[in-house]
């Protein structure tokens, strides 16, 4: 089974609530975490953006910033 097939298979099972073999899931996690990219380096500036939040309020990076800085978290999904 190639990696795309394995990833698609697991994601389908996750979507449908089907039982997932733990060994297969471990392989899926490893494949998913391959080639980890972590974005802007320490000491460099992050790109600006404007996004809407859960209440439809629009925020730029500047709007979110506290007086001492901020914690910006990227998560996979709140849905699964």
């Amino acid at each position: 089974m190639d990696s795309t097939e394995l990833i698609n298979g697991i994601l389908r099972k996750m979507g449908s609530g089907e039982k997932i073999d733990p060994a297969e899931f471990k392989k899926f996690v490893d494949l998913q975490n391959a080639d980890l990219r972590t974005g802007p380096a320490v000491g460099s500036k992050v790109p600006d953006f404007a996004l809407e939040d859960q209440n439809g309020r629009r925020f730029t990076l500047h709007d979110l910033m506290g007086s001492k800085g901020m914690l910006l978290v990227f998560t996979r999904s709140a849905d699964w």
Binding site: G43, L61, L72
Partner: peptide, 14 residues
């Protein structure tokens, strides 16, 4: 994304 956190200084520096 690859999930992770950035601690930013007030000027947007990581």
């Amino acid at each position: 994304p690859f999930p992770g956190d950035y601690v930013l200084a007030a000027d947007g520096t990581v």
